[in-house]
């Protein structure tokens, strides 16, 4: 009996070998496709850490850019306009709700209770600014701030006491703790991390084009040509000097903020001593408006509870004049190191 079945099987295979081969190959391609599709949904990879980039969002999100910019400018964070559009796309998807920044819950209302885009953006930008400030106070990196938008502010203190840098592993750890606390369970792709979405950062940042920093043109410095030239002339005197921690004059050398303080003092601009303090006194501007003579700020370049850890003078064409590990000189802000630590641009009045 079994011999008969084997013979019949062999005859079947020989007769239909072409069809069988096509079927097997097709099935393999389908399985591989499904596997890749599932993976990309679960753990999207390849995103930028910096909030600066161009929002890669569809027209129904892009249409709100003007409104969002109006309120980010009003609340002093215009540099986050594109990031907020990226966040909006993650939150809204293709939903037609008019609570475009999903602000209802942040003011204690049921989801989508607000149906006025202006109110939604106004409240949404304010909420984002408070989350941003909380994150800066906790000294955590920007991805941690983004993840806290999904997990809640508890995540900021969690990251703050666990190395200050967001990672998927930390997000999973936080989610698991909260899942256990709530006694939740789930069977979707997140399981067993059922609290929030531990891939939230990757999804939001994936909506920003990682194509470098869209900085402004080579226009005349807002400081004025004469002052800007004086700054460059003074800065040029120290090219090649090493970085000296705590140094703020030529007699001891310069650290980053000591350098900017010394240089700007030459044109009558009195700056406070540290990079964080200089950030605090400068008006924040979006990267697209940065001009020569503006400040460029970085975060997380060393261990501290301060948000801003490095400052340089933006001189146009994607370059900055600063004092860093490779000495005082002109450095490329598009290098992967500086791009991943970028916190924003600022301007001081002359």
């Amino acid at each position: 009996m079994s011999a008969t079945v084997a013979v019949k099987g062999t005859v079947f295979v020989v007769r239909y070998w072409k069809e069988i081969t096509i079927g097997v190959v097709f099935s393999l391609i389908l399985m591989a496709g499904l596997l890749l599709g599932t993976n990309s949904q679960e753990e999207p990879t390849g995103y930028i850490n910096s909030p600066f980039g161009k929002a890669n969002v569809p027209p129904h999100i892009e249409q709100w850019k003007g409104l969002v910019q109006e309120y980010t400018t009003k609340y002093g964070i215009p540099e986050y306009t594109d990031f907020l559009l990226a966040l909006m796309y993650q939150e809204l998807g293709n939903s037609q709700t008019l609570d475009i920044m999903q602000s209802s819950e942040s003011v204690g209302l049921p989801p989508n209770a607000i149906q006025d885009p202006v109110m939604s953006v106004n409240l949404g930008v304010q909420h984002f600014k408070s989350v941003l400030e909380d994150g800066q106070k906790n000294g955590v990196d920007f991805p941690a701030i983004v993840q806290s938008y999904n997990f809640g502010s508890g995540y900021l203190s969690f990251v703050s006491s666990n190395g200050k840098k967001h990672s998927v592993e930390l997000a999973q750890q936080f989610s698991l703790t909260q899942t256990e606390k709530q006694g939740w369970s789930c069977s979707d792709w997140r399981a067993p991390y059922c609290y929030g979405d531990y891939t939230y950062v990757e999804k939001v940042m994936g909506n920003l084009m990682p194509t470098g920093i869209a900085v402004g043109g080579e226009d005349v410095s807002p400081l004025g040509e004469q002052a800007f030239n004086a700054i460059i002339s003074e800065a040029n005197k120290y090219v090649g000097w090493p970085y000296v921690w705590g140094g703020s004059d030529p007699h001891r050398g310069f650290d980053c903020s000591g350098f900017t303080q010394w240089i700007f003092a030459k044109v009558g601009v009195k700056l406070p001593r540290t990079a964080q303090e200089q950030y605090d006194v400068s008006s924040k501007i979006p990267p697209s408006e940065a001009k020569p003579g503006d400040f460029i700020y970085f975060t997380g370049t060393y261990e501290t509870n301060k948000y801003i850890t490095h400052v340089g003078i933006y001189i146009g064409d994607g370059k900055m004049f600063d004092s860093n590990g490779s000495g005082i000189g002109i450095h490329d802000i598009h290098s992967s190191y500086w791009k991943s630590h970028l916190a924003g641009f600022g301007r001081v009045s002359h």
Partner: peptide
């Protein structure tokens, strides 16, 4: 970490 400068340490 605080004493070392931001960015990669290079030779001058």
């Amino acid at each position: 970490s605080k004493l070392k400068a931001s960015g990669e340490m290079g030779s001058m």
